[in-house]
Design a protein around this nucleic acid. Structure first.
Length: 210
DNA sequence: CGAATGATCGGCT
DNA sequence: GCCGATCATTCGA
């Protein structure tokens, strides 16, 4: 896994981090990781505190359920470390990290961040006057705060020039700091709706819902 | 080509 | 707690 030398700000997570075939384990591993963006010199960063796993072909809640391949979902079949961003309810740009080897359409939805850098840029993008949980607690709000849009779908998060990337600034979280629950907003997915594939950091106030 | 549908959010009752 | 916003995507005719 990630060697100790990879910890610290300024070190982009490399390809091998994203290749675990178990997307549920990846959703846990992404907790505590920092999501960073830089557009036109404006850097923003936040610590991932909430995620959800979407497991390709056998998960009815996944856009790749049944092995569906469409123009939109094609990037889900790329190698782990690719960004998958799609528009939800015509308004919200939801950011996912594609995980696993090529042709395995697994993705982890990033649902909430604890703001860390560039909070003034985040506030401006969100149209908020001061720091509050509404800034980045929720998948649509965090994408807006970070400047992430559907046009970024398909970018390689591990590329040296990518405007969006991930950093491990601290060791992995101990298991007793992670809480799991059912995923949000997937009631239509029948039996898959019961799978406890939402994960969040225990007692963290930036988590989107109770 | 038309119609239905969201992996949500924020304002209002 | 309820509900409307708003549009790319998908599927069926």
């Amino acid at each position: 896994m990630t060697p100790p030398s990879a910890y610290g700000a300024g070190h982009r997570l490399a390809r091998h981090f994203f290749l675990d075939k178990d997307v549920v384990r990846m959703a846990r591993a992404l907790l505590g990781i920092y999501l960073v963006s830089e557009f036109e010199g404006r850097r923003t960063a936040g610590r991932i505190v909430e995620t959800e796993a979407y497991r390709g072909p056998d998960d009815k809640a996944s856009h790749a359920w049944g092995g569906r391949r469409t123009a939109r979902t094609e990037v889900m079949y790329r190698i782990g470390g690719t960004a998958y961003v799609y528009l939800c309810y015509g308004i919200h740009h939801l950011f996912n990290v594609v995980t696993g080897p090529e042709n395995m359409p697994h993705a982890v939805l990033i649902r909430a961040l604890e703001p860390a850098e560039g909070i003034e840029h985040m506030l401006r993008r969100r149209g908020l006057p001061h720091l509050q949980y509404r800034l980045t607690a929720g998948p649509g709000t965090l994408s807006q705060a970070m400047g992430i849009r559907t046009e970024h779908s398909g970018i390689d998060l591990t590329a040296p020039q990518s405007p969006i990337w991930l950093e491990a600034r601290q060791p992995p979280l101990p298991a007793n700091q992670i809480v799991s629950s059912t995923r949000i907003g997937v009631g239509y997915a029948e039996e898959c709706a019961k799978w406890p594939w939402r994960f969040y950091i225990k007692n963290n106030p930036w988590v989107s819902k109770k």
